[in-house]
Computed example of a mutant assay.
Amino acid sequence: MSAARPDQARLDPTFLALPFRSLGETALARAAELGATHADFRFERVRYQSLAVRDGVLQDASDSEDLGFAVRVVHRGSWGFASGVVLTPEEARRVAETAVGVAEVAASMTAEPVVLAPEPVHDDVTWVSSYAVNPL
């Protein structure tokens, strides 16, 4: 077993168990097959907790989460974007196809093509929102 990367040591293991890497690979490969000159994949889980208190007494507590992914592309000189919440390879392909389709529609309305600034690829990067107290 390999050691966890430093950024992953801060992540909830239940998040790391989600299929975000395979979904990303599938979506990005499909976007490339369709001719996108740029594609990026984002996977996100946002967790919420709500507490209701009256006169110092807990009345209600609930936990919920939003889970999903998005594909953003540049195709034919225009941006395209789509998102999904079903975590399957078929849905990852469909979302990539939708993003490319949106870019194709936008291309007919884009007077000046999108030109990306030179920026190194940030492959396999993890961002964690800052917090003062570990919420996990």
Rank of each mutant, 00 (worst) to 15 (best):
A17L: 07
V128F: 08
D66Q: 14
D12H: 06
V73N: 05
S2H: 11
G84N: 01
L16E: 02
A3P: 09
V74C: 06
A117C: 11
V133F: 05
V95K: 01
L116N: 02
T88H: 11
A36I: 02
E112Q: 11
D12R: 15
D7T: 09
M1Q: 10
P6T: 09
R47S: 11
V115N: 07
A39G: 04
G24D: 01
E25W: 07
V121C: 12
L87E: 06
T126Y: 15
E97A: 13
A103S: 08
V128R: 15
F69C: 00
A106Q: 10
H38A: 14
A9I: 02
G35F: 01
R30G: 00
E65N: 12
L136C: 00
L67W: 03
S129I: 03
D66H: 13
L116V: 02
R93D: 11
E65R: 12
A17D: 06
P19T: 10
M1S: 12
D55R: 13
A99M: 06
L87P: 10
V105L: 09
E33N: 04
S62V: 07
A70R: 03
F15N: 06
Q8M: 11
L51F: 12
L136I: 07
E97C: 01
L18M: 12
F41K: 04
R72Y: 08
A31G: 00
L87T: 05
V74D: 04
A32R: 14
A70N: 01
R30D: 00
W127H: 09
N134R: 08
D123L: 14
R21L: 10
V86W: 04
S22M: 08
A36V: 01
Y48F: 15
D123A: 15
D124N: 11
F69D: 04
A39V: 01
P113Y: 02
S2D: 12
V85E: 14
L67K: 06
D66V: 15
P89K: 11
F81M: 05
T126S: 05
A9Q: 14
V128P: 05
S62D: 10
L51T: 15
G35P: 02
A103T: 08
V57G: 03
R42P: 00
G68C: 05
H75F: 05
P118E: 14
G56M: 04
